[in-house]
Nucleic acid binder design. Sequence first.
DNA 1: TTGAAAGCGTTACCAG
DNA 2: CTGGTAACGCTTTCAA
Lengths: 345, 345
Amino acid sequence: MTVTLKDLAKACGVSVGTVSRALNGKKEVSSATSDKIKQLAQSMGYVPNRAGRALSSQRNLSLIGVMLPSINSPFFDDIKRGINAAYQEFKDLGLEIVLLEREGWNVDDHLQAIADLKERGCRAFALCTVNDPRMRECINNLSDAGMPVVLINNDIPDTRRLCFVGPDYYKSGQIAAGMLEKCAQGRELRLLIVMGLKVHEGHKLRVQGFLSELDAKRVKYRIEQIVEGMDNDIVTQQSAMQAFAACPEINCVYMATGSGVSGLGAAIIANRDSHRFVIACDEIYTTRELVKNGIIDFVICQQSYMQGYQSIKRLHECLVRQHLPISTADYIVDCQIKIKNHFER
Amino acid sequence: MTVTLKDLAKACGVSVGTVSRALNGKKEVSSATSDKIKQLAQSMGYVPNRAGRALSSQRNLSLIGVMLPSINSPFFDDIKRGINAAYQEFKDLGLEIVLLEREGWNVDDHLQAIADLKERGCRAFALCTVNDPRMRECINNLSDAGMPVVLINNDIPDTRRLCFVGPDYYKSGQIAAGMLEKCAQGRELRLLIVMGLKVHEGHKLRVQGFLSELDAKRVKYRIEQIVEGMDNDIVTQQSAMQAFAACPEINCVYMATGSGVSGLGAAIIANRDSHRFVIACDEIYTTRELVKNGIIDFVICQQSYMQGYQSIKRLHECLVRQHLPISTADYIVDCQIKIKNHFER
DNA sequence: TTGAAAGCGTTACCAG
DNA sequence: CTGGTAACGCTTTCAA
């Protein structure tokens, strides 16, 4: 039998109301009884019932604030779909969401957005933001005030965030290298590497993983060029065009960022005379099309939908189960290798 | 505002009890009022509240019966983990599960198990079973009696099952071929193909997809041998050993089934002098180890955990939301290509 | 500081 | 065939 508040009340010789208040950390309970109740709850293995809770406090919903730098960035579409799916699933359990979208990675914008969310009464946060001293402080403050913060897609280590939900970027790079080793079959790789934004730690990690794995696998390679695409189509196209012009020997391209991919595609199409092996990251519409057309050979994807869905699920769990040992384990999504066949039919 | 039973009752001029009975299809309601209520529910966009429902009818839980041919088959471990995860997640919403495990694919065993589940009061079913006339009839009978049936991993088309949850086997084969094309780089493939059980339609589909895609991609290949591994380690090992002995030119192995993989591994280790490209299916412990050791190059995985989790989720949704347009769309899991790097660290 | 009770949405039971 | 009411587990308000 599952143990309820009533059972606890009986066992403690107090009323249900008191037990509820104690467990929810309301301050109108004497610390003596409160301690006793908490201890008993612990030892009897009490787990709050979501149904009862949702039903009772549905005017006092669990409000989750979400902030994404998603304006003009198709990468976030799947994350948003996942967030919405979680909302649909849990709204009758009292979940409510406020989504604030911003353009780009400006710290002040993001801090302001978070302040707005707090203003609007949010008690938990799912954020995709930038690693900056002020942001770290902000995250720690929220956490210390009992408001859990989940970081989506871009981790900020050494903060008191609840957990990180996103990919293992280093491994993503390793896997790209692993695929290349299978396909290179001993030939020497002449590499063009396209980096993304400086603020995004993940892009750097991908390249590190990529190169270290090429070394570990003893693949023969030479880095012809490393260019900064700035997550921008035009910049990426120009950089890639210049690289191909300067080094026609380039036979392999690793694009460590998802944005700017249509620029890379354009550059490759313009230089289609010599075949090049191309590995890209992250699944957006343009990338899919380029894979379908044989311009890109592999994409290493990162289950964006899951990232959105799981971050909300985790926070909702956190709010709805309160006063229970909460999992602070990161949710690391799979690195999915996709080829043309994945997108056909 | 969300519309509740009370709202419907007021709008219809009847009591909540009557509305509840009508919507749940109890026969003690006059068809006139019942129709009126249903229509109104429709037009007012009524959606039953899971919390209320779970709370009220928790003595009359939604009992789901599961039958898997999982005894002595490690493939089902992940499916079972997924089922258990769904149970943990939904038990406080009234979900209860009865799992019956069987060894092998005998129709009579399976029919008996299903009868047992019905006996025990199950009102919905998640089954992994075999395509047989009597089984088809059994599934149709259950469905017609208002008990939804989800088929896991092995579809039985042309039945009135609620939906199928599992992989696209044909595509899985295509993807194996697509990977091979990238790696073959123009060399001719001398193929050994290992089939699994005859009862499992999926294994055949994989081979069909595999070969048709090799053709479509104009990969040069020759089928040296096709052997039946019977999903058995010993049989698979012996068949593979004989094939390698008869045709040392074999440079590529496609194993279209997940079971018996350790037999294949043994055969390859015993013939390690010449390197062969090996593609396997499904992720079990042994396969992971063989990939880690470089015996197998790729595995095409099928998200088994998700299959277990989603089939239960779907059925629970179905029971808990009753009298609502229910999604009958199949849940097709991803074909995930995994290489050594996926299993390291 | 605590207890008692109302209320959330639903179903089941008991009368009528 | 239908209405009224208790019950499920929980939070919150009102009294004491």
